[in-house]
């Protein structure tokens, strides 16, 4: 599986077939629901606008993926990250993280150009050049100490900047929260990446496997979020709200 899309679509299929997707609660035979002590209609004015309301027509599916991701974390990714942290000392992991941040700048600069934003694009180009050369292929971050700012842009943000709305909320297998626009954006970003193929992954299987292994380990090890650690029964709702807020800010930036 050389291409990420193959792996992702395979997973998506597995999950789809193993998922019950209804968000409706099951009720005891045929009765209407009882009135709870506190009922929504009595507690809230109808037109109160509430921050938790986010467009999520596929919530049943999304919740299934949310759970799937927590299992993937528990049984595969977290143990793998533990091994990664045990085997590689901190400075090596920092190098790996720097390497991928530098590589991401390729995607960032492309999207900055697509968004017609010359100044950030210059920053990012500067970072790419300095860190790839002086920083030995991106392993060292030389650009930050000399004051070149780090940005982050993706094709989802580019679409957002041109007025494409985020669309329905979508939990992606392994990748976590997203929106339809941003998921499509990811697809475009990865097609562009494969077309440029800056690491010439096409030429070596060994290189491809190493790349993907390190990419996944680095991504998981630099993300502090852990599923079901808030303790809240509304964790899914909270994650959805915070993610929507984060993306809104990133697009506006």
């Amino acid at each position: 599986m050389k291409h990420p899309t193959t792996a992702a679509s395979f997973l998506m299929l597995v999950v789809l077939f193993s998922a019950g997707c209804s968000t409706a609660p099951s009720k005891e035979s045929g009765q209407p629901p009882d009135d709870p002590y506190y009922e929504r209609g009595r507690m809230m004015i109808d037109d109160t606008d509430a921050p938790l309301e986010i467009n999520d027509p596929w919530e049943g599916f999304n919740r299934t993926i949310f759970r799937f991701n927590s299992y993937a974390d528990r049984w595969v990714l977290n143990p793998a990250v533990s091994v990664y942290r045990f085997v590689f000392p901190g400075f090596v992991r920092t190098g790996v993280s720097n390497f991928f941040t530098n590589l991401d700048n390729l995607q960032t600069v492309i999207n900055e150009i697509l968004q017609l934003r010359p100044v950030p694009a210059l920053h990012t180009t500067g970072r790419l050049i300095v860190n790839t050369t002086v920083g030995i292929g991106g392993l060292f971050d030389v650009a930050t100490p000399i004051g070149i700012p780090q940005h982050y842009e993706d094709f989802g943000q580019t679409l957002g900047r041109y007025g494409v709305s985020d669309g329905p909320f979508l939990m992606l297998p392994l990748l976590g929260p997203s929106f339809v626009r941003d998921a499509a954006g990811r697809g475009v970003d990865s097609v562009i990446f494969s077309a440029i193929d800056p690491l010439q992954l096409d030429e070596s299987d060994a290189r491809t496997y190493t790349y993907w292994t390190l990419l996944i380990l680095n991504a998981r090890s630099t993300t502090s979020f852990q599923y079901y650690q808030t303790g809240s029964p509304f964790e899914y709702e909270l994650v959805r709200l915070l993610w929507a807020t984060k993306r809104q800010l990133e697009v506006e930036k």
């Binding site: 968000t23 099951s26 009720k27 005891e28 629901p33 009135d35 709870p36 506190y38 929504r40 509430a50």
Partner: peptide
């Protein structure tokens, strides 16, 4: 108890909880 969730409603793993969260 039927305080926020109606007592005769059984929640599944996928039940949307937003209304309950609001309340």
């Amino acid at each position: 108890y039927g305080f926020i969730k109606p007592a005769n409603v059984v929640l599944t793993r996928n039940t949307a909880l937003e209304d309950y969260a609001q309340v």
